[in-house]
Amino acid sequence: MDGTARHSELLTQLRKHTTSKACLYIKRLSDIQLPILERILQQSYDHIKSRDGQMQALSKHKIGGTAVIPLSDVDRRRTLSFGFHTTLLHQGMVVVGLRYSFEASPRTDEVGGDLPTEPPRSQAATGNSSPRKSISVGRGTWESVSPKSARN
């Protein structure tokens, strides 16, 4: 199973048992509430399998695309505060250099939207002074990752 800490709430209902970091010790099934144990097993199984699915997806390094990965709450917060690429690097994204002539690299016409900051003065002076709010880059390969994919 995964760590026992994640299951502390159900464990309080289990009755007679002891735990270590990753183990649950039971003397007799008659000492415990079997339905509660089943729920813990199910939770634990689902959790590990979803993390496993995530790792399988990350191990296939993609170039020039974006993988959509189910993130934990911590990762989600980190994404919001530091930007997405930091999280992808943390999750094992590989950054590679490509020559400018690389066919599959994004073309400039695929960069849409507006710059997040004010344009340089020189550009503003040329008359292109519309308010700029956001920037978006097209051509992402969106791939949803099924938690129970891959192994077995």
Partner: peptide
């Protein structure tokens, strides 16, 4: 043990 997963 039931089923397997890969850890790193």
């Amino acid at each position: 043990g039931f089923d397997t997963y890969h850890y790193k």
